[in-house]
Amino acid sequence: MIRVLVADDHTIVRETLVAALDASGECMVVGQAADGIEAVDQCLRLQPDIAIVDISMPRLNGIEVVRRLRADLPQMRILVLTMHQEEEYVLHMLRAGAAGYLRKDAAMAELLEAVRALGGGGLHFGAHATRAMAMQVQQARPMPADPYRDLSPREREVFHLIVDGLTTKEIALRLDIGIKTAENHRQRVFAKLDVRNAAELVRYAARNHLID
């Protein structure tokens, strides 16, 4: 049986969804979360096959939830179930790593189809999401650049040393540069990759397969 976690801050929506999923006999709801932080914690603890995640949630929004879960539980599939149908939301979630995207008013039959698809390791996108992706391809808007490729050779060296767990002082020693220079490199790497600390940098590296 497919093990599912449901994260939605709207109690009635969450409970009716849980009841409908349980009643289907195709999956089992193993956990529920009412905000983004709880969603991440519950997923880490329960390790479901699929997390069904809303976008607008208190404490941590769905986009950030998907990013974190993709980094920490790469084998788990994430289905976004949301009120939002605009192209931009779809693309944001897709880039964050969602394996499926449905509007909340999707018929139960389609929702179950998505659960089956993701449960089997596949993908499922509703009509709106599919159209959004088609528009993206046809308009050929540039996908966001790969920030790692924008790092200078020196910054890449610093990047990998941080990933290896070296402190700024150790990096300065290793590369035979001043501590201040090493710190500048470090700050620039953080800024270019849009991360705040070494832990996030390591997650970035893992997500982008930049670690051996």
Binding site: H10, I12, V13, T16, M83, D105, M108
Partner: peptide, 14 residues
Amino acid sequence: VGQNLVALMRQLDV
């Protein structure tokens, strides 16, 4: 309001 309507639809499905 929107989400209540969604829950209502889900109820009708069930």
